[in-house]
Amino acid sequence: MKLLELYATMKKDVQFIENQLEKSIRCDHELLSETSLHLFKAGGKRLRPVFVLLSGKFGTYDLEKLQHIAVPLEMIHMATLVHDDVIDDANTRRGQLTVKSKWDNKIAMYTGDYLYAKALSIVTQLHNPVIHQVLSKAIVQMCIGELEQLRDFFNTDQTVRNYLLRIRRKTALLIAISCQLGAIAVGAPDKVSAALYRYGYNVGMAFQVRDDLLDLCGTEKQIGKPPGSDMRQGNITLPVLLALQDEQIRGPLLAEIAEIQQQEGKHDASKAIQMIRGSKGLEQAEEMADRYIAKALHALESLPNVKAKKNLTDIAHFVAKRSY
């Protein structure tokens, strides 16, 4: 099943969440509404809300409760994107100008802060302390992940372990708690919410590895930004780290990355991209993503055989092979 086909089977509930998301983003302050809606209107996969809804199928499904998880988690994701674009000095996202590019860095930072704050205010409508504890701990870890990415900009000596810890915090955690909190909100058993967390974590790790591969292998039309953008911004991703382990290209590749850094990302990254594509780094990164998907599928095995289990399996396969 393709992702759009899955969304079609959930059309009514997904559209409800989309409507609530837009309604929640709007506020009395004209500029904040405009900047926040700018990213919303650029679209997105809305994977986190879908994970919340599907995980809610493992308990007493209640869309009114689930909206108070799905909407804020997507808003938190949006906030991280706005902040990331400032840190990365990115001009485009999803083929559109970023908030920081259309307005400026200060407005972008306050937009991200607003989205965070609004998200937390929505979650307070659920009176379950476990939900608040899980969410607050995840946000702390996400902030640490952002700082560690900033610290490791252009650090070609970082280890693969450092990279994996960083993407765990930056990407996998939010997907993991989307699955976990969706189940908790509807009263699913602890063992079910724990299995869904493991599923989401592993899907999230694979999702980010695939994202890093697409940045080097995809076209601008596919990924909504020029290929090699991560490297030009100083973000040394898994395929690059693995390519650097090849002694035959390590020296020339390091020289290209140093040139990119020296010219503050304005240097043409095509030579570096070609070297990475010619190494085993891409293949090894693909294999790692596949291992995470296998772990995600294994986590689903103990869950009840409801339709949502098949849907989650389909999403895992989509993530494994996605090209956008």
Rank of each mutant, 00 (worst) to 15 (best):
residue 4 L to K: 14
residue 5 E to V: 01
residue 8 A to F: 07
residue 8 A to W: 05
residue 10 M to W: 02
residue 10 M to V: 00
residue 12 K to W: 11
residue 12 K to F: 06
residue 14 V to P: 04
residue 18 E to N: 13
residue 20 Q to W: 04
residue 20 Q to P: 06
residue 21 L to I: 05
residue 22 E to I: 07
residue 29 H to C: 04
residue 31 L to W: 09
residue 31 L to E: 15
residue 36 S to N: 03
residue 41 K to E: 15
residue 42 A to V: 08
residue 45 K to M: 00
residue 47 L to Y: 04
residue 47 L to C: 03
residue 48 R to E: 01
residue 50 V to D: 07
residue 51 F to A: 04
residue 55 S to G: 08
residue 55 S to W: 12
residue 60 T to S: 14
residue 62 D to T: 03
residue 64 E to V: 14
residue 68 H to S: 09
residue 69 I to F: 09
residue 69 I to T: 02
residue 70 A to R: 07
residue 73 L to M: 11
residue 76 I to E: 05
residue 78 M to Q: 15
residue 82 V to E: 15
residue 82 V to W: 13
residue 84 D to F: 10
residue 85 D to A: 13
residue 87 I to T: 14
residue 89 D to L: 14
residue 95 G to T: 02
residue 99 V to D: 08
residue 102 K to D: 12
residue 103 W to F: 13
residue 105 N to S: 15
residue 111 T to L: 09
residue 114 Y to E: 06
residue 116 Y to H: 10
residue 117 A to M: 05
residue 118 K to F: 02
residue 123 V to A: 01
residue 123 V to Y: 00
residue 124 T to Y: 07
residue 125 Q to D: 07
residue 128 N to S: 07
residue 128 N to W: 03
residue 128 N to L: 15
residue 132 H to E: 07
residue 134 V to N: 08
residue 139 I to G: 13
residue 147 L to M: 14
residue 147 L to C: 15
residue 149 Q to I: 12
residue 150 L to E: 13
residue 154 F to I: 08
residue 157 D to A: 01
residue 158 Q to H: 04
residue 158 Q to V: 13
residue 158 Q to C: 08
residue 159 T to H: 11
residue 159 T to A: 09
residue 160 V to E: 15
residue 169 R to D: 14
residue 171 T to I: 07
residue 172 A to W: 02
residue 173 L to K: 08
residue 178 S to I: 05
residue 178 S to K: 05
residue 181 L to K: 11
residue 186 V to P: 05
residue 187 G to H: 08
residue 188 A to S: 12
residue 192 V to D: 07
residue 197 Y to Q: 02
residue 200 G to P: 00
residue 200 G to E: 08
residue 204 G to V: 04
residue 207 F to S: 03
residue 210 R to G: 00
residue 213 L to I: 00
residue 215 D to L: 02
residue 215 D to H: 07
residue 216 L to D: 02
residue 217 C to A: 03
residue 218 G to R: 00
residue 219 T to S: 14
residue 224 G to D: 01
residue 226 P to I: 03
residue 227 P to Y: 03
residue 228 G to T: 01
residue 232 R to T: 12
residue 233 Q to C: 14
residue 236 I to L: 06
residue 237 T to Q: 07
residue 239 P to K: 08
residue 242 L to E: 10
residue 245 Q to I: 02
residue 258 A to E: 01
residue 258 A to R: 11
residue 262 Q to W: 04
residue 262 Q to C: 06
residue 264 E to H: 12
residue 265 G to K: 06
residue 266 K to Q: 15
residue 266 K to P: 06
residue 269 A to C: 11
residue 272 A to Q: 03
residue 274 Q to G: 01
residue 279 S to C: 01
residue 280 K to R: 11
residue 285 A to E: 05
residue 287 E to L: 10
residue 291 R to G: 00
residue 292 Y to M: 05
residue 294 A to H: 09
residue 296 A to K: 00
residue 296 A to I: 03
residue 300 L to F: 04
residue 300 L to N: 09
residue 303 L to T: 07
residue 303 L to Q: 06
residue 304 P to E: 02
residue 304 P to S: 02
residue 305 N to D: 10
residue 306 V to D: 06
residue 309 K to N: 12
residue 310 K to N: 13
residue 311 N to V: 15
residue 314 D to Q: 13
residue 318 F to L: 07
residue 318 F to E: 04
residue 321 K to G: 06
residue 322 R to Q: 00
residue 323 S to P: 02
